[in-house]
Computed example of a mutant assay.
Amino acid sequence: MILRKFAAIDIGSNAVRLLVHNVIEQPDREPSFKKSALVRVPVRLGEDSFLKSKISDHNLQRLIKTMQSFSLLMEVYGVEKYMACATSALREAANGKEVINAVHKASGIKIEIIDGKREASIIASTDLKELIQKDRAYLYVDVGGGSTEFTVFDRGQLIASKSFKIGTVRMLNGLEDEGVWNKIQEWIKSHLGGKDKVEIIGSGGNINKLHKMSGRKLNQPLSFIWLNAQYHFLNSMQYEDRISELGLNQDRADVIIPAAKIFLSAAKWSGAKKINVPKIGLADGMIKTLYYQ
């Protein structure tokens, strides 16, 4: 048996994450992937990027310190290879390239700024196909801070994928593109309209948190009815009460509501009554991409 360690760094609009995976290799067996550690730091780059079109010096320094700590953690864990990807916040920031150069110089970590298509293809390399049954269609929805990736699977095959400029941090600041909701609705209906059996596969920290709050087991999906009721319940509470009474983190208590709205809209337009939450996403796809390269 050989134990190898790989890491993924996901630099999103709401938070920055380090995921460390153990990969167990054994003769005549498929490699086994197991999460070893997950560290999440709430560096909200999206507010800089979407409001001011550039990353501030303050958040640049926070990002640099985060990457320096991640570099040390990877060294301690014995990580042999890592992949670091930045999504919409750095993609849209006017100084995105300067930021990744400064981070590389200070921490040694090389960051790749990826577009929506690349993001969707990395996500598709996860264990999604093991969850997908061939007698129904699925809409995979990955909600981020600045963008949301939608992928359609039908009869076990990937049919279409598209990234839209809508996300939790963008919505909190009222920065959605004009008409984006109509565009998403048209796209979903063009690929899933008329299909009887449609389910959603949800990804991202917010839907994972909602699933945990529901008390359901890992393989039990959320129902549209429960999610709708929870959305209205959360929306009726003050931000401070979501923190003090529900125990939500400060950087989760606000973004969880727009995230729920995106999932509910996707379910309504696709006709899905169930939202599966397998707890896999971009970082998991990065680990698989890195290993099989």
Rank of each mutant, 00 (worst) to 15 (best):
G145D: 04
G145H: 07
G145L: 07
G146T: 08
G146I: 09
S147T: 04
T148E: 07
F150K: 02
T151M: 15
T151V: 14
D154K: 13
D154F: 10
L158V: 14
I159G: 02
A160R: 08
A160Q: 07
S161V: 00
S161H: 13
K162Y: 10
K162D: 02
S163H: 09
S163I: 03
S163T: 09
S163F: 08
F164Y: 10
F164E: 03
F164R: 10
K165V: 02
K165R: 14
K165E: 14
I166M: 11
G167W: 05
T168V: 07
T168Y: 01
V169Q: 04
R170M: 08
M171N: 01
M171V: 08
M171Y: 02
L172D: 10
N173S: 12
N173E: 12
N173M: 10
G174H: 10
L175S: 06
L175M: 15
E176I: 04
D177Y: 07
E178S: 13
G179T: 09
W181H: 11
N182W: 10
K183M: 13
I184L: 12
I184N: 00
Q185D: 15
E186M: 11
W187K: 00
K189E: 15
K189N: 09
K189Q: 15
H191V: 05
H191S: 05
H191Q: 15
H191W: 11
L192V: 04
L192N: 03
G193N: 11
G193I: 06
G193H: 09
G194K: 08
K195L: 14
D196A: 13
D196R: 11
K197I: 00
K197M: 01
V198Q: 02
E199K: 11
E199D: 14
E199Q: 11
I200W: 03
I200G: 00
I201L: 06
I201V: 12
G202P: 01
G204Q: 11
G205H: 10
N206W: 13
N206C: 08
I207Y: 05
I207K: 06
I207H: 04
N208I: 07
N208Y: 11
N208L: 04
K209Q: 14
K209M: 13
H211A: 09
H211R: 08
S214Q: 11
G215S: 08
R216A: 06
R216L: 15
K217T: 15
K217V: 13
L218I: 15
L218V: 14
L218T: 13
N219P: 00
P221A: 03
L222P: 00
L222G: 00
L222K: 05
L222V: 03
S223A: 05
F224W: 13
F224D: 12
F224K: 15
I225V: 14
